[in-house]
Nucleic acid binder design. Sequence first.
DNA 1: GACAAGCACTCTGCCCGTTGGAGTGCTAAA
DNA 2: TTTAGCACTCCAACGGGCAGAGTGCTTGTC
Lengths: 349, 349
Amino acid sequence: MEEQDELGERKARVLRAIVEEYVRTGEPVGSQTIAEGYDLGVSPATIRNEMAALEELGYLDHPHTSAGRIPTDRAYREFVNSLPAAGRLGQAQSRAITDFFAPTVLDLEEALRGATQLLSKLTRYAGLALPPSITDERVAHVELVGIGSAIMVLVVGQHGRVDKRVLDRPDGLDDRLLLGLSGNLASVLGGLTVAEAKARALQMALEASEPDRVLLTVLADAFGELNVGEGTDHVLVGGVANLASEAEAWHRETIHRLIEALERESEMLQLLREAASSEDLSVMIGGEHPSTGQWEASVVAAPYRAGDTSLGTIGIVGPTRMDYLTAISTVRAVARRISELATSLGQPR
Amino acid sequence: MEEQDELGERKARVLRAIVEEYVRTGEPVGSQTIAEGYDLGVSPATIRNEMAALEELGYLDHPHTSAGRIPTDRAYREFVNSLPAAGRLGQAQSRAITDFFAPTVLDLEEALRGATQLLSKLTRYAGLALPPSITDERVAHVELVGIGSAIMVLVVGQHGRVDKRVLDRPDGLDDRLLLGLSGNLASVLGGLTVAEAKARALQMALEASEPDRVLLTVLADAFGELNVGEGTDHVLVGGVANLASEAEAWHRETIHRLIEALERESEMLQLLREAASSEDLSVMIGGEHPSTGQWEASVVAAPYRAGDTSLGTIGIVGPTRMDYLTAISTVRAVARRISELATSLGQPR
DNA sequence: GACAAGCACTCTGCCCGTTGGAGTGCTAAA
DNA sequence: TTTAGCACTCCAACGGGCAGAGTGCTTGTC
């Protein structure tokens, strides 16, 4: 925290120019390129002086003596912070987003899945989406279904999320019995959170007589598992292929770790959850976060809401050398449309 | 179809040696290497003659005059066909498979998801699984749930597969009404195929009076959509990261297309469906199939069954330069265990 | 004092010729 | 039919030389 944002007007402009140029070309950028391409009204020599100063301050790096400069994570951060709050979106991009949301989609998860594709197509990075967690939702419906020698517990959240647990079927519980109990469950447990539903089921078990009792205990178990979240929440990912082809930006080892993490989900889950609790769009750049640091990547994510309550997050992952401007405006625009959709879906009519 | 499998004993042995060596090292292999490493009892010169003949026959290729030989797709095919029917599995591999199936899993889809991970870990390629298609299954349960301004139709298959469709809610259908109809559906539609269920729902719509009539029509629509299969069937994929790190074997463009195809699913779906209808394990090598040809990959897949009926497929994708021996035995072993699991899950008790 | 111009210096990337080695293909002998 | 020998081919690796891009510093100028 030295020189708190006060780089001086010109240093800031030079820095921005370098970042833009480097993002565009991927090559270390020299003073001359900047002097020619971005009219700062000064000579290469002056720019060199500024560059040296910026390097001193930790914003730039040198692969070797006589090479151009490369932005550090810190430079990207400065760059992102200095970005105008409302980035403009290209004509084509806006069109694509509008088109995507034109047909009526009624299933939020479906929409999110599509949104990851949309994001990846627009940014050329990988698209991410964190659907609403069932632990935050209220239960809309509960159903018990016999599947061979097991019982399936189906839980539907108010936002249309469906989760299931399959548990061992205790002896002597035929499908008819399940059906009978199922009928009541919806009205009894509807509107409760998962945690509350578990408690309620346990309580009912105490009061019930034998055939139902064991069944309600099983049900409570299922809610318990859902609440712990083991394997409950997932991250939707789209456009991983883009990462593979963008791979010049990464070491082989690094991209391997990134894709692995995308499959394992847990780290992304955490990252996106953090972003979900943020008020506005958030950007994590490389080393700023242990996870993104590990795979030399940046994440741009924004929460989406139904009305006032935050439901989840959408975003993208890409190399730290990222086109933050369009990434940010794209994520923001898509998040807004998803929010509108989620809000309208929540409205009973 | 020339020289139908009759290469002659020695040519066949030379070919197998070359394939093994190339798979192991990834480098073009020369006559001397073969003479030293694989005791065929002949000199390098003789092997060179055989190599020339094999090249003539289309089994080998030459990057340039003075380089070693590289197997063609045809060579891999010959190699795979000549493999002993029952490949032995390594100690560690067997152990891993046993361990994986040790805990009781009750959810087939869950098990399949895990199996893709298992396969990818054991083979270092990407694991695939095709879950049972709901169109082939019989309906175990149907449920209508109101979600805000929409209706969710939940369909549970006999093997525990859950599918949902969200449709517009016609006016004047409150949740109570949905619940009322839901109660009967399970018993009326249970045991039918999706197509039959659609017909039945339509028929019931004709006979019903007004509030239910429109609802049953909606229901029939949902079944219709399920049956067409648009977005209904999915391929489970695990271990894509392995492909990225194995990337030396591929051109960047090619691996991009492969990962893209894995996300798009449609091509893989088709491939795995073909494999599902096959009696035993099937191997598709590079150019033998338009899809695998396009991304210079091979697919090893085997169907799994409950009792006698084929439910789906598990398998792997990797570069054509693949360790077919362990790939095949691994896939076969996992398929068998999945079959056992599926069979036992199907058994009502 | 800030900017610009000039200049020496440094490092990379590339071209290119050379060389060693791996591998083939052919021929002739066993 | 096999194999030993040999000439030939081609690549990959090494190293020198060169051009170019870029820096840092010093000096001059407004």
